[in-house]
Amino acid sequence: GLEHMADEEKLPPGWEKRMERSSGRVYYFNHITNASQWERPSG
């Protein structure tokens, strides 16, 4: 619901949600550090 939507907005600075086109899996990418990970970043 709306709570989940708001929660997605609160990623740490630099992080954004991305989708891997080949598999459709969602991952997280940090455009500041060029880091990427499957787990939702905390902090």
Rank of each mutant, 00 (worst) to 15 (best):
Y27I: 05
T33Q: 04
F29M: 02
E16D: 03
S23N: 06
D7V: 10
I32E: 09
I32L: 11
H4E: 14
K10D: 15
Y28Q: 00
E39G: 05
T33H: 04
R18K: 10
R18M: 08
G14A: 04
E39P: 04
V26F: 13
G14S: 03
K10F: 10
E9L: 08
R18Y: 05
H4A: 12
S23A: 03
K17G: 03
L11N: 02
H4F: 13
E9G: 09
R25Y: 04
Y27T: 01
K10H: 11
V26N: 05
K10S: 12
Q37N: 02
P12S: 02
S36M: 15
P13R: 06
Y28T: 00
R21G: 12
E20A: 10
D7L: 09
P12L: 04
G1A: 12
R21E: 15
Y27V: 03
R21L: 15
A35E: 15
G14N: 08
Y28W: 05
P13D: 08
T33L: 05
N30H: 04
K10M: 13
E20R: 04
D7Q: 10
H4M: 14
E39T: 07
T33M: 04
S36I: 15
S36L: 11
E16P: 00
L2Q: 13
G43A: 12
A6L: 12
F29R: 02
H4L: 14
G43N: 13
E39H: 08
A35V: 15
S22M: 09
W38T: 07
A6M: 11
H31K: 12
H31N: 14
R18W: 03
N30W: 01
M5P: 13
G14F: 07
V26E: 13
Y28D: 01
A6K: 10
E8C: 15
Y27D: 03
G43M: 15
A35G: 07
E9T: 08
M5K: 10
S42M: 11
K10R: 12
M19P: 02
E3M: 06
Y27W: 06
E39A: 05
W15R: 00
L2D: 11
Y27K: 03
N30L: 02
F29W: 08
G14E: 05
D7S: 10
S36N: 06
R40P: 11
G43F: 15
S36F: 10
P13F: 11
K10P: 15
D7K: 09
R21D: 11
L2H: 12
I32Q: 08
W15T: 00
R40F: 11
P13A: 08
M19K: 09
R40H: 10
R40V: 09
S23Y: 03
T33S: 06
E39Y: 06
Y27F: 08
H4P: 12
E9P: 09
K10G: 12
W38Q: 06
P41M: 01
G43S: 13
Y27S: 01
M5I: 13
N30Q: 02
G1Y: 12
L11D: 11
N30P: 00
W38R: 06
P12H: 02
I32S: 06
K10W: 14
G1W: 10
I32Y: 10
K10E: 15
L11Y: 02
H31G: 06
S23L: 04
R25H: 05
S22R: 11
W15Y: 01
E20I: 11
E9A: 08
A6T: 12
Y27P: 01
S23V: 03
A6H: 14
R40I: 08
W38P: 05
S22I: 13
N34K: 14
H31W: 14
W38F: 11
M5N: 12
G14M: 04
R25T: 05
E3F: 01
R21K: 15
K17F: 03
S42C: 15
K17L: 09
Y28E: 01
P12Q: 02
S23E: 04
P41C: 02
E20Y: 07
Q37T: 04
G24S: 04
S42P: 08
K17Y: 04
R18H: 07
H31T: 15
G1D: 14
F29P: 02
G14T: 02
F29N: 01
I32M: 09
S42Y: 10
W38L: 08
L2N: 12
S23T: 15
L2W: 15
E39D: 09
W15A: 00
Q37G: 02
H31F: 14
E20C: 15
E9I: 08
N34M: 11
H4R: 11
R25A: 06
R21F: 12
I32P: 02
E9Y: 07
A35N: 10
R18Q: 04
E8N: 12
F29G: 01
R21W: 08
E3R: 09
N34P: 01
T33R: 04
I32G: 05
E9W: 05
G43Q: 13
E9V: 07
E16W: 03
F29D: 02
Y27G: 02
G1R: 11
P13G: 05
D7P: 10
E9Q: 09
N34D: 05
Y28R: 00
R25N: 07
L2E: 14
S42K: 09
E8I: 10
N30M: 01
L2P: 12
E3A: 13
N30S: 04
R40N: 07
P41N: 00
G24A: 04
G14Y: 07
F29E: 04
A6S: 14
V26S: 06
L11Q: 02
W38S: 07
F29L: 02
G43R: 09
G24E: 05
P41Q: 00
K10L: 11
S22A: 12
K17W: 03
R40D: 05
E20N: 08
R40M: 07
A6C: 15
N34R: 09
L2A: 13
W15Q: 00
G43T: 12
L2M: 13
G24P: 01
L11I: 06
G1T: 11
F29Y: 15
P41R: 00
V26P: 08
M5V: 12
P41E: 01
M19N: 06
S23D: 06
N30V: 01
G24T: 03
S23M: 04
S22L: 10
G14Q: 04
W38D: 08
L11E: 15
R18D: 01
S36Y: 10
R18F: 06
N34C: 15
E39S: 05
G24M: 05
E16M: 06
K17N: 02
E39F: 05
A6D: 14
S42I: 15
A35I: 15
N34G: 15
G24D: 05
G1P: 12
N34Q: 13
E3P: 13
L2C: 15
R21I: 15
G24V: 02
P41F: 01
G1L: 12
M5Q: 12
L11A: 01
P12W: 03
P12M: 03
M5F: 13
I32K: 07
F29I: 05
D7G: 10
Q37H: 02
W38N: 07
R18V: 08
A6P: 13
K17V: 11
S36W: 15
K17R: 11
K17M: 12
R21Y: 11
A35W: 08
E20T: 09
L2S: 14
E16S: 08
V26W: 12
K17E: 09
Y27C: 07
I32H: 09
I32V: 09
L2V: 12
S36H: 12
T33N: 05
Y28S: 00
P41T: 01
S23G: 05
H4K: 12
S36G: 06
G43D: 13
E16H: 07
R21Q: 15
P41Y: 03
N34W: 05
A6R: 10
E3I: 12
Q37M: 06
H31Q: 09
R18S: 02
E3H: 10
E20G: 06
E8A: 10
Q37E: 03
T33P: 00
E16N: 04
K17A: 09
V26G: 03
V26A: 07
S23P: 01
H31D: 05
R25S: 04
W15D: 00
K17P: 06
M5D: 14
N34S: 08
G43V: 13
E20Q: 11
S23Q: 04
V26I: 14
E8W: 01
D7A: 10
L2T: 13
F29A: 01
W38H: 06
H31E: 09
G43K: 09
M19H: 11
E16Q: 09
W38A: 06
S23F: 03
N34I: 04
A35T: 15
W38G: 05
A35P: 02
E39R: 04
G43C: 15
I32W: 06
A35S: 11
Y27N: 02
E3L: 06
G14R: 01
E20M: 08
E9K: 07
P41D: 01
H4W: 10
N30G: 01
E8F: 03
P12R: 01
L2K: 13
S23K: 04
E39L: 05
N30R: 00
G43H: 11
G1H: 13
G1S: 11
A6E: 11
H31M: 11
G43E: 13
